[in-house]
């Protein structure tokens, strides 16, 4: 790659540079990033594109939106509905709890080491998902779990009183185990971005602590909080491994439905399966998009 270097600042004037030098040099530039694009294209973009294409294909060929219209069929809708309910609940609750924990360890006056421990633990717990997490909850809140047994000692039969680990409530509780730490990790920098001077300026102008939080701190943090909750939503919405390990893949969840569709055409319509998958991609893309828009806004403020 000796071609691309001159010791003066080569980027100073790309227009002049491009005009003067032959295009071979530009190709040299692109060579450095080519593997990245090829790899991404083959392994991330192409599989998605083919699903998208197939989802638009009718049973007899030709492009159609029929498959997307069938997304409103009951089987699909109930799976999506459960996915959205679990994701929304675990995102909002996980977001709130995560925010409170982040607040407690950053400006809540707790000893400094607790912050380091908590943020490292959050790194661990946000990645502690899938089979081990499901197993841990089976041993905790499953029919023979330790906590279930403790409740029995207190005379409360959790499973008789309607609780099940393999339900909306149970799955939400399990998901929160990686949702809360993720919230902590993402929101901590935003809380750190609150300047001490803002609090002092507010106090100085006569504001109470409550007024400061209501009028300054929370509004400043709100884009980050909302954005991260949306990120959490996507995080739960696309989760497959944990639910699969917990329920054996038989729960009515969008990701599990796609899994079943891969193994055998449970929807009895391959095109619909592709549309279900693409629907997920669209919802995920929307949530990531909203997240990044909100994040950009908060960065502008917290600069």
């Amino acid at each position: 790659m000796k071609s691309s270097i001159s010791s003066s600042s080569p980027l100073a004037n790309p227009a002049v540079r491009g005009a003067r030098r032959p295009s071979r040099f530009k190709f040299g530039y692109w060579l450095g990033v080519l593997p990245f694009f090829v790899f991404s294209a083959l392994l991330l973009i192409a599989p998605t594109v083919i699903l998208g294409y197939r989802s638009l294909e009718g049973p007899d060929g030709g492009l159609t939106l029929d498959n997307y219209r069938q997304l409103t069929s009951e089987a699909v809708l109930s799976a999506y509905g459960m996915s959205i309910r679990i994701s929304l609940t675990s995102a909002v609750l996980g977001g709130l709890v995560g925010f409170l924990i982040a607040w407690a360890i950053s400006i809540g006056g707790l000893p400094r080491p607790l912050r380091t421990i908590t943020s490292t633990f959050s790194g661990v717990a946000s990645n502690f998902a899938g089979v081990p997490l499901a197993a841990a909850y089976v041993f905790t809140l499953g029919r023979v779990g330790v906590v279930t047994a403790l409740f029995e000692l207190l005379g409360i039969d959790l499973y008789r009183s309607g609780f099940s680990l393999y339900s909306f409530t149970g799955l939400t509780l399990v998901y929160m185990y990686f949702q809360i730490p993720l919230m902590v990790l993402v929101i901590l920098p935003a809380i750190d971005g609150l300047k001490r001077e803002w609090r002092e300026a507010a106090e100085n102008l006569g504001a109470t602590s409550t007024q400061y939080w209501r009028d300054v701190a929370l509004p400043v943090l709100m884009p980050s909080i909302l954005g991260t909750m949306i990120l959490l939503f996507g995080n739960a919405f696309g989760a497959h491994a944990t639910a699969y390990a917990l329920t054996g893949g038989l729960f009515n969840l969008a990701t599990l439905l796609i899994g079943q569709q891969i193994s055998g055409d449970v929807l009895h319509n391959p095109g619909l399966g592709y549309a279900v998958a693409m629907g997920m991609v669209i919802i995920m893309a929307l949530s990531i998009l909203i997240y990044s828009v909100l994040q950009r806004r908060s960065e502008r403020w917290l600069r």
Binding site: L44, A46, T48, G238, H240, I258, I262, A277, M284
Partner: peptide
């Protein structure tokens, strides 16, 4: 993209 495309969708494709 890895955040946008759920693993189960990716493996499907």
């Amino acid at each position: 993209l890895p955040f946008v495309i759920p693993a189960v969708v990716l493996v499907f494709g």
